[in-house]
Amino acid sequence: MAYQYLLFYKPYNVLSQFSESGDAPTALTLKAFIPVAAVYPVGRLDRDSEGLMLLTNDGRLQHRLSDPRYGHPRTYWVQVEGEPTEAALGQLRQGVTIRGYRTRPCKASRLPEDPPLPPRHPPIRYRQSIPTTWLALTLEEGKNRQVRRMTAAVGYPTLRLVRWAIGDLTLEDLQPGQWRSLTPDEQRRLRAMA
């Protein structure tokens, strides 16, 4: 059997699964976008998050990229409410405690300008009196809603969350709802990362 490796730009309000959900029977799933049989997501993105997903039928690779023991970098662009202080960024870098769990250290920095992302539909809430800031966070773990809980723990709630990269694979050249196969070179680099 030939292995397949796909990159997908998951739009906002889409479930990270192919089957419909009893909790959200009208929500779109991956099935509405990806007509490739027998591939499965490596990890998840929440319904209210956007960004890069990797799908494959390579079970061994899927396991190594999903298992927390084999942490691999994932970079998120996060729009937060307010203007985080250097102290708050330092807390994120060192790890914060959320729900009784201490997160691993991560990379955290302000983006120098708004990232080149398409507008979200529906748009995030806008408050004229409260500024927003875009951050880049690179984590090597991925617990449920972790990025949102981390930014909230340091006092800056997440408004928009986009996974920009998995390792060195990025959303570049993809629009929400689009997918493509990995090139042979990207496949080699992905296997090396795992």
Rank of each mutant, 00 (worst) to 15 (best):
D168G: 05
A152V: 03
S129P: 00
A32N: 15
P25S: 02
S181A: 15
W179L: 01
R191D: 01
Q146S: 01
T133H: 02
M53E: 06
P131K: 13
P118L: 06
Q175S: 12
R99Q: 15
Y126N: 11
L6A: 06
P115Y: 11
Q62E: 12
H72P: 00
Q146Y: 03
A2R: 15
L137H: 05
G177S: 01
V14G: 12
Q146D: 02
L92G: 09
K31E: 13
L28E: 15
T97K: 14
S129V: 05
A88E: 09
G177V: 04
V42G: 12
R64M: 13
D168W: 04
V96E: 06
T133L: 05
P25F: 01
F18A: 10
A165N: 04
P35M: 12
R69N: 13
R191F: 01
S109N: 09
A192M: 07
T183C: 05
S66A: 15
P123W: 02
T75H: 06
D185Q: 15
E141P: 00
S49Q: 09
G51K: 04
R149C: 00
P184W: 01
R163E: 07
Y12V: 00
A136T: 05
V14I: 11
R145G: 00
S19P: 00
I130R: 13
R148L: 09
V14W: 11
G90Q: 11
I166A: 02
D48I: 02
E140S: 08
Q128K: 14
Q187E: 15
